[in-house]
């Protein structure tokens, strides 16, 4: 049996990205961003762990849109960011000292901001700002393999997000006359289905106990 009780662990994903497009007949555009997701947990007993997950993302770009009189036709700056906070519970079945399965529920809360240009041609460009709040409840399952005392490799087996609610507010501004339009959207779903991911490997590091 893996000795897990009382141990703290951390796992996560992180990414950065850049792109640059340099066409011969229009302006150069580029984009950049990062995202990360960290799970921090603790084994309460040998077979149960609880923890928090945190996520954050940010993206920016230099982009261009159709000409609007009196306004520069390029945009340079941050155009999106998001935060997420989740709570998870995991129940384990350890088959031997190296290998086991886990499953459990999670709750998550998220916020995302996005800004984009809806380009309808010269003098018809809208700047759209979108604020989205998400609440979701789900279940996920995975397997682990312990390849050193400190490092586990984990793989997701399946997940289900039967309940989700999303609320978004969109603010759309015409650049030519500054008129503003607003819309609100509420989306909800109940879907008791299991989805099996195609790829879902992760590393988990166990902290030294003080």
């Amino acid at each position: 049996m893996a000795q897990t009780e009382g141990k703290h662990f951390i796992s996560g994903t992180a990414g950065i990205n850049f792109n640059n497009i340099n066409p011969s007949e229009s302006e150069t555009t580029n984009g950049y961003g990062y995202n990360f997701n960290i799970d921090i947990g603790k084994f309460r007993t040998a077979n149960t762990a609880t923890g928090w997950s945190l996520s954050n993302s940010l993206s920016g770009s230099k982009s261009s849109h159709s000409r609007v009189e009196g306004i520069p036709s390029t945009y340079n700056g941050i155009n999106g960011f998001g935060f997420g906070l989740g709570r998870f519970w995991q129940f384990y079945k350890h088959f031997n000292t190296k290998f086991g399965l886990y499953a459990g529920p999670q709750l998550s809360l998220g916020y995302a901001f996005n800004k984009k240009y809806d380009d309808g041609g010269a003098n018809n460009v809208r700047a759209e700002k979108d604020n989205t709040f998400t609440l979701a409840a789900g279940v996920s399952a995975g397997a682990y393999y312990q390849f050193t005392e400190r490092w586990w490799i984990t793989g997701s087996i399946g997940f289900s997000n039967p309940v989700s609610v999303e609320f978004s507010m969109v603010n759309s501004k015409h650049l030519s006359d500054q008129s503003t339009f607003k819309s609100k959207n509420l989306t909800y779903q109940f879907l008791p289905a299991i989805t099996f991911p195609s790829v879902g490997l992760g590393l988990r590091y166990f902290l030294k106990n003080n």
Binding site: S179, T187, Y188, L191
Partner: peptide, 15 residues
């Protein structure tokens, strides 16, 4: 079994 989806949108467009 049951599954459901709802989408509700309110727009002030144009004002």
């Amino acid at each position: 079994t049951v599954n459901l989806t709802g989408i509700h949108t309110h727009r002030k467009d144009p004002p």
